[in-house]
Structure formats: structure tokens, C-alpha cells
């Protein structure tokens, strides 16, 4: 039986008081400046995080000892408006080439600042694109989010 799994993308919006070219640059070239230091897959502490500035580029961390660990790839590189990364890290924080999720980040001019819309799509786990639904993104919305998931998915991901 060909079973598929649908899960809502994670969507976040944030506004920053800076023009989009600057926001884009700090999101990419300056990633090591804001990425949570605890979120590393390397035994060596993070020295830098590299997003190669082109479609098809690598996305990886470099440790204090110079060693490199892959995180994913650059799918779309359209400064200063849009960035799409292939995220291939699992929650136990290991590189998993079989895990294909996409992070799309849009930088939208908003007065003297920039609105950033981030969407992390998890449908690399299945193929049910028509089944997106309203997203619960409040931190305390566990209950509603999981109920929604339960109603939509209706089967074990292990299936």
C-alpha cells in the first residue's frame, strides 16, 4: 500500500529594522553570528557557518579545528529577496542525506525595515501537497497542533 504523510510546514514571520540586503547578508554570510551555538553536529565548536552564495552551493559548519560538517545545500540564491536551503539535519542533530526538507526565506521590504517570512517544509517525508492546512505556530499551541496533525495524518509515520 502506498501511504503518504502530510504535515504542515513550519511558518514564521519576523520584522527587522534593517534593509533587506543587510538582513539577507546577515542571514547567510553572518549566520555564525546568530545561529544557536548548541546546534552543531561537529565535535569541535563552531567557528563558522558557510552558505555558499550560489544555487547548488554547500551549507556547512566549520569547527575550531578546521573540520567541516555538511548541513545541506543551497537550492535558490536570489539576494536580497529569496533564499531556499535544503535542510538535511535530523533532530538528533546528525547529517542525513535521506532527509530532504526545504527552508525558504523571503525578505520583503516593509517601510524602513524588512519582513522575513520563513517556511520550513517537511513534505520530503511524503507527497501530499494538496493537504496543507492552517498552522499553529504559537509556542503553547502543542495541543492544537498535534490534534490537527492527528486528524490529517491519521497513520503512523513508521508505516
Amino acid at each position: 500500500m502506498n501511504q503518504t504523510i502530510a504535515v504542515a510546514p513550519v511558518r514564521k514571520t519576523i520584522r527587522v529594522a534593517a534593509p533587506s540586503d543587510r538582513a539577507f547578508a546577515i542571514f547567510t554570510a553572518g549566520m555564525a553570528g546568530w545561529w544557536p551555538k548548541s546546534h552543531s553536529i561537529n565535535a569541535s565548536p563552531i567557528r563558522d557557518i558557510v552558505v555558499e552564495p550560489r544555487a547548488g552551493g554547500r551549507w556547512f559548519e566549520r569547527g575550531e579545528d578546521g573540520s567541516e560538517c555538511e548541513w545541506g545545500k543551497v537550492i535558490a540564491w536570489e539576494p536580497p529577496r529569496r533564499l531556499v536551503l535544503a535542510w538535511q539535519l535530523s533532530p538528533d542533530w546528525r547529517f542525513d542525506p535521506g532527509l530532504l526538507t526545504e527552508v525558504e526565506v523571503r525578505f520583503i521590504a516593509d517601510g524602513d525595515g524588512t519582513r522575513i517570512e520563513l517556511e520550513h517544509r517537511l513534505d520530503g517525508y511524503g507527497d501530499q501537497a494538496g493537504q496543507m492546512f492552517a498552522v499553529y505556530d504559537r509556542k503553547d499551541a502543542w495541543q492544537g497542533m498535534l490534534e490537527r496533525l492527528a486528524a490529517t495524518v491519521g497513520l503512523s509515520p513508521a508505516a
Binding site: A17, R22, A23, I26, W34, W35, I116
Partner: peptide, 10 residues
């Protein structure tokens, strides 16, 4: 992470 990103940009 986005909260940290915002702080870094600003």
C-alpha cells in the same frame, strides 16, 4: 533562532 537573528541584525 529567528529571535537571535533579529537581535544580530539590529
Amino acid at each position: 533562532s529567528l529571535a537571535a537573528f533579529q537581535a544580530e541584525v539590529e
